[in-house]
Design a binder for these strands. Sequence first.
DNA 1: ACCTGAACACCGTTCAAGT
DNA 2: ACCTGAACACCGTTCAAGT
Lengths: 207, 207
Amino acid sequence: MAPTEKAPPKPRKEPRQARAKVTVDAIFEATLQLLLTDGPRRLTTTRVAHRAGVSVGTMYQYFPNKEALIFALNARYLDALAERIETVCRNMAGSRAEAMVAALIDCYWQAKTERADVTRALYRSVAELDNSSLIEAFAERVDTATQAMLASAPDLAGREATPLALTLVTVIFGTVRNAFERGLSPAEVAHLKGELCSMCQVYLRAR
Amino acid sequence: MAPTEKAPPKPRKEPRQARAKVTVDAIFEATLQLLLTDGPRRLTTTRVAHRAGVSVGTMYQYFPNKEALIFALNARYLDALAERIETVCRNMAGSRAEAMVAALIDCYWQAKTERADVTRALYRSVAELDNSSLIEAFAERVDTATQAMLASAPDLAGREATPLALTLVTVIFGTVRNAFERGLSPAEVAHLKGELCSMCQVYLRAR
DNA sequence: ACCTGAACACCGTTCAAGT
DNA sequence: ACCTGAACACCGTTCAAGT
């Protein structure tokens, strides 16, 4: 009964020569620009190719279809985001649990906010295709990094890091995303961020 | 620099005769069914019309374009959901704050879970179009209902209901949505729900 | 190894004609 | 008042031909 759709699309072939790499980068850049200026509905292969300065045929050498292009663009973005989070988690090793949570919230919030237009454009672009594998891979990395971080907290002895990480990551990432989707005012956003932070910290102290 | 897109599409005209109402319902039902079985990518106007037993032209009498159809379908769903939440909020008036939060989480969680396929299909269908006005209207209703409920809690005297409602609603709805997007196991989901609940309750007790 | 662009199938949308 | 479906413009995708 599940929607019958193809497996997650992957890049057709890797660019081997330097000019090919330039081409692929140009295609990615053109896609993002069009997404930002015109929205996902007006994103056509012809326009992407034209903006990238290549022909449609060239685009299809590297991406089997339009979905694969959008998929790859999102994969790129999520990979960079996961890397940032992993770095923060590594840097916070050994700190107090409260500081860890604050840093995690800060990092994610910052990443979403600093290029809000990009975040929104990518959210919307990817949604019509099955991106669950991307989301799962991303969540897996973030969970793992958070677990490792929490396990190193001196004031968290005796609490299992695995379920704790799952809860915190889901609550934090879900809240940020939702805050992002709603049209909150800057004042409301600032207040919410503080409340989310203290909520997680109170939760850590309890029990 | 914002994506240049049309204003939120609205139904072209209201059905005046009985058979027209039947037609519109058939179109909605066909859209949902196709979304569930084939996914948003294979949702074409021709197929919707065919499944609904009408011609394409008929569909275009009630919806100015395909987007408007998807928009209206989502509006329907969110309206029903908001109504459920408002009812719960009314029913919980005068209870203790902890019970309120638990009921709110339960209601939303239940609504998302009982027809998980529908939830997912609608999420994906609406994402490529600008649904911010839908989201805002929904959030506004839920916020208002939650505020009114919290203001009636005997154990919450002296705490402002408005920012409290905003925080709780954003955290709860964001978490549920995120939990939903990740492919969590039933055991993890159950655990998460309990933790979210106690997290909100500890937060209410604090300060 | 990489690129081109005309050609094809199909989808969203319209509109003159019907009941 | 409501419905039909051929017709049109345009989009995704291919492939024979080029460098």
